[in-house]
Design a protein around this nucleic acid. Structure first.
Lengths: 208, 208
DNA sequence: ATAAAATGCGAGCGATCGCTCACATTGTCT
DNA sequence: AGACAATGTGAGCGATCGCTCGCATTTTAT
């Protein structure tokens, strides 16, 4: 294959008409992606699913990857800002409560559109832009590390940076894995309880 | 695309010659997969990388997916038996020690061929045969649950099944994530320490 | 030695895919 | 109203891919 490597749009939509076109295309991309998977995703299929000419698609997206990348960027951005906002919100709460809130938010976020989330996270490593992801991940890590450092005297942690990595990895991964392998567990409140317990015991702030 | 869905080999290699061919093909698949990724993987490319005719390839593998599936099955089988063996081996050790051993093994397993492991785990959800994977995962879960139940009086766990899910997810995911995002951490002994700490504190058997 | 089975070969068919380009239509500005 | 930019269209080119099939070669069985 190996045609294009550019993933930035070739043209910015200036008029309302073209903005609508771009939105339609991205919506169609989502639909096709969820229904067919990344392999069944072709630019022709997206264009026709969007009811838009293939030529129009290529006005705004230089290639197939750019389509998925736009989706990933949008999705991850949403997730990350939601998490950061929640972290800020719970910064002053008792740590056990704060942990529970973050766990709950993570689970809620995964429950919104699990299929899309799954397909997108699968595709992330295949798209070049791991860097961007890593960046957001590290912002999150640093923020957690900051929180841990600020309340160092409350917790049984020596290295806040390493602990932050462990915590972020753990919460994200347990939830992600539950969503992937045992979707029904996402509805189970005991998953929240137990994940919170994992976190609080690790931090040494568990109630029980 | 949508050509074949069968993933079982069409013919069993009976003679030594054909067994060698199959091995060569699988080796080549590994090489191509690591170098080109799943998208760059074509049956033609594999055949030529293996120095084998495309016709021969199709004697033993009905399609592209079957190639990757064979690799996944083999790889996961190895991993699983290694983990199960280790679990059996450490069953009588103090829990803190046992936890550390399992964490160490998991990290070692990920360090063998991180690239291949990464590519393969990426492809797992795309191949139909999630079922097989889930099966192995559940064997592992049940075994851990069994261990936890057997030593119920030593630990601060109410539901061994849920705890087993959490533990298996946690260890696998933290290590996997480290391998994916921060490969150098795999060499860091503090990752072992901290992951072990996470586990032991959760179980309520931490030394410190 | 000979037949039969197993294995290996690779040209090439049909289908699909990514993408371009010449042209038509719609919107904006003066 | 006229000019120019922005946007939309889709036939179709070139490339690749999955896979088949007729045939050659090697191994096994008798």
């Amino acid at each position: 294959m190996q045609r294009q490597t550019r993933t930035t749009p070739r043209k910015r939509p200036r008029q309302a008409r073209s903005k609508a076109t771009v939105d339609t295309i991205l919506e169609a991309t989502t639909r096709v992606l969820v229904k067919q998977g990344f392999d069944g995703l072709s630019t022709n299929a997206v264009a026709s699913a969007a009811g838009v000419s293939i030529g129009s698609l290529y006005q705004y997206f230089p290639n197939k990857e750019a389509l998925v990348l736009a989706l990933i960027e949008r999705h991850m951005e949403e997730m990350n800002t939601a998490i950061l906002a929640e972290l800020t919100r719970v910064a002053k709460l008792p740590l056990a409560e704060a942990a529970r809130c973050v766990v709950e938010l993570t689970i809620r976020a995964h429950a919104v559109d699990p299929e899309l989330h799954r397909v997108l996270t699968e595709q992330v490593p295949r798209i070049g832009k791991l860097a961007r992801l890593r960046e957001m991940d590290e912002i999150c890590n640093r923020m957690v590390a900051g929180l841990l450092t600020a309340r160092r005297n409350e917790i049984a942690i020596r290295d806040p940076d390493l602990a932050a990595f462990i915590l972020v990895s753990t919460i994200e991964s347990v939830v992600h894995r539950a969503a992937l392998l045992y979707p029904q567990r996402l509805r189970d409140p005991r998953l929240i309880d137990e994940t919170t317990l994992l976190v609080t015991r690790y931090l040494g702030v568990a109630a029980n």
